[in-house]
Computed example of a mutant assay.
Amino acid sequence: MTARVSWPDRLRGLAIPAALLLLWQWAAHHSTAYAYAFVPFEQVWRGAVQALESGGLLPNLGASLARTCAGLLIGSVLGLALGGVLAMSTLADKLAGTLFHALRQVPLLAWAPLIGLWFGNSEPARLLVISLAALYPVTLNTFEGLHQAESRHLELASLYQLTAWQQFWRVRLPAALPHVFTGLMHALTFAWISAVGAEMLFSAGPGIGSMMLTAETNQQMEIVLICVITISAMGTLMNHALTLAARRLLRWHR
């Protein structure tokens, strides 16, 4: 059974965030030099109500979530396929493995000028950034997972004269599923972060990142903070949901 965290331990975990929030509120009311940066909580609350009532927050959040899901789907499907091919084919690993590992060392921000040159300030440019962010962790974890099948299981499969395709579906893939879900969880985090970053780099169209840029230009720091809080909350919820799904689907693997 999983050990339960006691209430005193949970309260200790809230001590530092509470102290930082109090320090922020103090700076908002007592520091005239940084009044622009430290927005009081009451102003943030009014900004949140206004953003919800005006219909500005939810459409931008929906656009970012849709963009994240699309990029995550593209990157994950390609990552599963690429990781599977590299793991199952020695020739493919020799031909493409070195290139893949070299390309994944390049930060996504370094690709931004080329992507902007190829696709302009467009939706395909944003989707490409998100897809690349999801591609790398899924490919790596799929590759590693397919190599985790125990040798005794593979020997037993050979004894029963299973074909390579049957060994893949019945032995290698079940053994790889925990690694695949780990890759998907990492891919979800990277895709969500990259979606916001791509919206700030290629700012045409709706999205939380675009909303933050507009608010910063208009010196609406309360809107910027609302966007930051929304990004953090949605990322946490999506990761928690995927973790619960993985636990249910992989219950048989324990």
Score class of each variant (00 low, 15 high):
residue 30 H to K: 14
residue 30 H to L: 15
residue 31 S to I: 15
residue 31 S to V: 15
residue 32 T to H: 11
residue 36 Y to C: 10
residue 36 Y to R: 14
residue 36 Y to W: 15
residue 38 F to R: 05
residue 38 F to D: 08
residue 38 F to T: 02
residue 40 P to L: 03
residue 40 P to G: 03
residue 42 E to V: 04
residue 42 E to K: 05
residue 44 V to D: 10
residue 44 V to S: 09
residue 45 W to D: 09
residue 48 A to M: 02
residue 49 V to E: 11
residue 50 Q to G: 07
residue 52 L to G: 00
residue 53 E to P: 01
residue 53 E to R: 07
residue 54 S to V: 02
residue 54 S to C: 01
residue 55 G to L: 13
residue 55 G to E: 09
residue 56 G to T: 04
residue 58 L to V: 12
residue 58 L to E: 01
residue 60 N to C: 15
residue 61 L to A: 04
residue 61 L to N: 01
residue 61 L to M: 10
residue 62 G to L: 14
residue 62 G to N: 05
residue 62 G to R: 03
residue 62 G to D: 13
residue 63 A to V: 09
residue 63 A to L: 13
residue 65 L to E: 02
residue 66 A to P: 14
residue 66 A to S: 06
residue 67 R to I: 00
residue 67 R to M: 09
residue 67 R to F: 15
residue 68 T to F: 11
residue 68 T to I: 03
residue 69 C to E: 06
residue 71 G to C: 15
residue 72 L to W: 03
residue 74 I to C: 10
residue 75 G to Y: 10
residue 75 G to P: 11
residue 75 G to R: 01
residue 76 S to Y: 04
residue 76 S to E: 01
residue 80 L to F: 04
residue 81 A to G: 09
residue 81 A to L: 15
residue 83 G to A: 03
residue 85 V to A: 08
residue 87 A to P: 03
residue 87 A to K: 00
residue 88 M to E: 14
residue 89 S to G: 14
residue 92 A to S: 14
residue 92 A to D: 01
residue 92 A to Y: 10
residue 92 A to Q: 03
residue 92 A to L: 08
residue 94 K to P: 06
residue 94 K to A: 14
residue 98 T to M: 14
residue 98 T to L: 13
residue 100 F to Y: 04
residue 100 F to G: 04
residue 102 A to I: 12
residue 103 L to P: 15
residue 103 L to H: 07
residue 103 L to R: 10
residue 104 R to D: 11
residue 104 R to I: 12
residue 106 V to F: 14
residue 106 V to H: 02
residue 106 V to D: 09
residue 109 L to M: 01
residue 109 L to P: 12
residue 109 L to R: 00
residue 109 L to F: 12
residue 110 A to C: 14
residue 110 A to W: 00
residue 111 W to Y: 07
